[in-house]
């Protein structure tokens, strides 16, 4: 933690409502202003704060003035949701005007006014310009792959000789042996499902790779209880793809073909700024 953040934490009177800051600037994203000289952002920022553009040569920062950071333990999640969505709305508005931004993580706050922001941009100028140039014309898309394991189980015996053999032996066995064979059946079915999940994940990657400048596999960590699926589908993979915005339709068509061919479902979200692929800046 820097000296500034230690001082700010010590000054804070309401820790759950963020830290007090001196001449703070909440930073939404960095953009390339050269294609839209003099342009401004009309969207309102988090909690309706007026948003404006701070320019430093070929880099511009989209900011609003603030006296505190946002608390990491807000009184209700609804409030944090509103703040996060408003943050995204500003980033979207900046993308419309200036093209692909370098997006900041929510709650990135500078001290020291506009001079603090521009001083930092000067220090990091080449890296920021390099990032803006390399992401120009791209967008991030998120794809989740889902399948219905029940229909796979229903047809498993037709496809797998080992399962059929275990099933036949079960019919002829006594109670004790049938129980053990049932365990073998379940184990074999688990193996087949695991193989199929791996095949489908590979198929998803092959499908999107031709349109992807970069691809990153994500943790498949959103449990069904958090996002109930009406069709009881199981999420088996998530990927983030950085693609040219002109390839969006092609990416969608390729996903359509995957769904049709392999009987899976996909959730396709975007276009987002390159959150996953944005570099960390010193």
């Amino acid at each position: 933690m820097s000296k500034h953040s230690t001082d700010a934490a010590a000054r804070s009177e309401k820790p759950n409502d963020g830290q007090e800051v001196t001449d703070g600037r909440y930073l939404y994203c960095l953009v390339d202003p050269t294609a839209a000289e003099g342009a401004e952002i009309t969207a309102r920022g988090v909690e309706d704060a007026p948003v404006y553009v701070v320019r430093e040569r070929g880099v511009a920062a989209i900011v609003h003035d603030c006296e505190r950071t946002y608390g990491t333990e807000p009184p209700d999640t609804d409030l944090l949701t509103q703040r996060v969505l408003r943050h995204q709305q500003v980033v979207d508005a900046a993308s419309e005007v200036f093209g692909t931004p370098l997006p900041m993580r929510f709650n990135t706050v500078f001290e020291g006014g506009n001079a603090g922001v521009t001083g930092w941009i000067r220090d990091q100028y080449d890296r920021i310009r390099g990032g803006l140039c390399s992401f120009a014309g791209t967008r991030e898309y998120r794809i989740s792959l889902l399948w219905d394991p029940t229909s796979f189980e229903d047809g498993a015996e037709d496809r797998d000789g080992k399962l059929r053999k275990i099933q036949q032996r079960q019919r002829q066995a006594g109670t004790g042996k049938a129980f053990l064979l049932e365990k073998q059946y379940d184990k074999r079915l688990r193996e087949l499902k695991s193989e199929r999940r791996t095949e489908l994940t590979a198929a998803l990657k092959r499908t999107v790779e031709p349109t992807a400048r970069e691809l990153q596999e994500q943790e498949s960590n959103v449990s069904p209880s958090e996002t109930p699926d009406p069709a009881d589908r199981e999420q088996i993979a998530r990927v983030a793809v950085l693609a040219d915005e002109t390839d969006e339709a092609e990416l969608g068509s390729r996903l359509d073909r995957l769904v049709e061919r392999d009987g899976v479902s996909v959730r396709f979200t975007g276009p987002w700024p390159p959150y996953t692929f944005a570099p960390d800046l010193g």
């Binding site: 820097s2 500034h4 706050v109 500078f110």
Partner: peptide, 8 residues
Amino acid sequence: IQADVVVT
């Protein structure tokens, strides 16, 4: 961002 002027 890792910088002295960034609070959080």
